[in-house]
Each structure stands twice: as C-alpha cells, then as structure tokens.
Amino acid sequence: MNNPIFTGQLVRLIIMNLDEDLKLIEEWNVDSEYQRLLDAGAANRYNFKLTKEFFEKEIVGMHAFMIQKLDDDRKIGMIELEGFNWQVGSAWVGIGIGVRELWGKGYGTDAMRIILRYGFTMLNLNRIQLDVFSINQRAMASYEKAGFKHEGHLNGNLLKAGVRYDEVFMGVLRREWEQLQTAN
C-alpha cells in the first residue's frame, strides 16, 4: 500500500491492527523514558485487555496510524490526530517513535509531515497543535522542521525526579503549512 497522501520519504502511515499493534505498543512501553517523553501522566504498565478496551472505545474519536518504515515495512511508532474541534477546524497531534535506536533519524519528522498533509488537505483543518515537554529538545526540533511554531508554555508543568520542566505548546496554521510547501 503506497497511497501518496500517506507516504513520505522514509515512512508511510497505515491503519492500526489493534491485536498486533497493541502488543508492539506494550513492548515500547517497557522503555519508561519513551512513556515519560510521550505523556504528562505517570509511566505505567498496562494490562493488554484493558489497553485494547481503551483503544476500542477511544479510537472512534481518533485518526490513529502506525508509522511503518518504507525500506523494511517495520512498524516503529504511532501517530494520531485527536481532540478535533470542527467549529474552528483544529486538532491535536500526538506522536511516538517506540523503537529507541531509531530516534533522531528523521522518521518522526517524516511521519509528522504526512499527518499535516492529511489534516490540511483531506480533513480541511485550519490548525494542528501539540504539546511537548521542554526536556524533549529533539522532538521540538523535529516539530519545527515540520512547520510548527512555538505558541507559549506552561511553567514547570511536568515534575519528574524532583525537577520541573515546562509544557511547551506548538501549532501550525494551514496557510503557514501551504507557504512551506511552496517554499520547498
């Protein structure tokens, strides 16, 4: 499957296979750093049955995809649009590359570029936003490359090991994204 909308330079986005992919996510969650960078909640180990029930309930409001490498078809992460506000045409995006040795190699940036294209050209969104913790400089650099701009931060909103980190908010408007496509 190489639908051009869902295919980038390094990865493609494919629909989830819950039985198969939740096992992968469970494997990735063993890496607590992955969880801590992904979410403001406390890192935890989740029962497979409960995780599946959660996804079966929540996936209705999500546009969730697995990130698959083009060269070997390996699934390496997931990305989703959620929290849609159809009145203003906005959505939140969340992304995680679960395979640690593939961090910082451009796969996340490529996946983000694909989902922005999907959000703006197929869903007619006007803005896409995310939050990220200030400790995750690598992710922020990736989001900037994809076109996101900083929109501010909540001071010290994440507390880990006695240290407070800012919760940084970033967003991209469709016209900014369109300008970026023209420039590229």
Partner: peptide, 14 residues
Amino acid sequence: AVRQRENVYRSEKL
C-alpha cells in the same frame, strides 16, 4: 502563557 492562534470561534470570527 500560551496563545493558540485562531482556535476559538465567536462573533463571526476566529
């Protein structure tokens, strides 16, 4: 602290 641009619709504008 944060300004999410064009994320509220009221009185006929964003």
